[in-house]
């Protein structure tokens, strides 16, 4: 009798709707809580990030010009597909060091977060935009438009929820996203599974790109890349935050760096500037969309 060989998955990058390996050929070993190596994930390089930004730039016009209603539907579809992969996502989080119950909860909250932003897609403009009273015969109004290509630097913990919470508002507003997940301490396997989920969610290729690598290396490239329009980062070190802000100053990228507390454990104290990722009221607000939109004010002649 023969013993069946296990067929293990190769975790790859997600660029332009495809799953390439890193052009550098590098990988990072991921260990579970007991220190056993469970997988080798791609170690994305400067050139992988460059390719991801090109893909995002190419996908941007289609996504930003899609109706808000369609974007909402696609975000909801992403949540639907995640729901079907709940088990695999939770298992990936457990492999990455999470406890089973906490992992299940993190997946559920992540799905709910996507649903929340699916709802916001055709509504946030009404909240962030406005009519302006002006002294003259004009109808004057302000509308939000997507900033463009947004780089997301996901926190190590909660790896999945943090990633979803940063990407969802940017996608909801019509931005294209290049997300970076730390493979040295974060949840790269869960991120890779998430990419597979999103690849089958009607999301056009290139709108969301996911790279696993080291944050130190990739934040430097993000900071210097002039074709990135905004950066949302969480859980980065003080040095990385400084690199991002300094690099962003050169071509005036928008940068939002969030601190966060390490876990979503009940009872953990939330200090000033920290994000409680599990707090729906705090994390599912249009104020998360506001940093990745630009306000356009229009003066329209009126007959009055």
């Amino acid at each position: 009798m023969t013993t069946r060989l296990e067929v293990n998955k190769t975790y790859k990058l997600f660029i332009d709707g495809k799953f390439p390996r890193s052009e550098s050929g590098r990988t990072i070993a991921v260990a579970d809580a007991r220190g056993r190596v469970v997988a080798h994930v791609c170690h994305a390089s400067r050139k992988d990030l460059r390719d991801a930004v090109s893909a995002a730039r190419k996908a941007l016009p289609g996504w930003r010009n899609a109706t808000a209603y369609l974007r909402g539907q696609i975000l909801y579809r992403m949540a639907e597909m995640m729901e079907g992969k709940r088990g695999e996502l939770a298992a990936a989080l457990v492999v990455g060091g999470g406890r089973p119950a906490a992992a299940r909860r993190e997946v559920e909250v992540s799905i709910d977060r996507l649903v929340a932003y699916a709802g916001w897609a055709d509504k946030f403009a009404q909240v962030l935009g406005c009519n302006n009273a002006v002294a003259g015969p004009y109808y004057n109004f302000t509308v939000p438009e997507p900033t463009g290509v947004v780089a997301v630097v996901a926190p190590d913990a909660p790896g999945l929820l943090g990633l979803v919470s940063l990407c969802a508002p940017a996608l909801c507003a019509g931005n294209a996203v290049v997300a970076v997940v730390g493979a040295d301490g974060g949840q790269p396997i869960a991120a890779a599974v998430l990419a597979e989920v999103f690849a089958t969610s009607d999301l056009p290729g290139g709108v969301l790109n996911l790279l696993t690598g080291t944050r130190d290396e990739l934040t430097t490239v993000i900071a210097g890349h002039r074709d990135i329009d905004a950066v949302l980062a969480a859980g980065v070190s003080a040095d990385q935050a400084r690199v991002l802000r300094e690099g962003a100053a050169e071509n005036v990228k928008r940068v939002r760096v969030l601190d966060h507390k390490a876990t979503g454990n009940k009872g953990a104290k939330v200090t000033r500037g920290e994000v409680d990722w599990f707090d729906a009221a705090a994390c599912e607000s249009p104020w998360w969309i506001e940093p990745v939109v630009e306000m356009k004010t229009i003066w329209h002649p009126s007959a009055a």
Binding site: R50, R57, G224, H225, R226, D227, E250, N251
Partner: peptide, 9 residues
């Protein structure tokens, strides 16, 4: 300069 340019360059 080691940095990638933007489309508006």
């Amino acid at each position: 300069c080691g940095k990638y340019s933007a489309r508006y360059d």
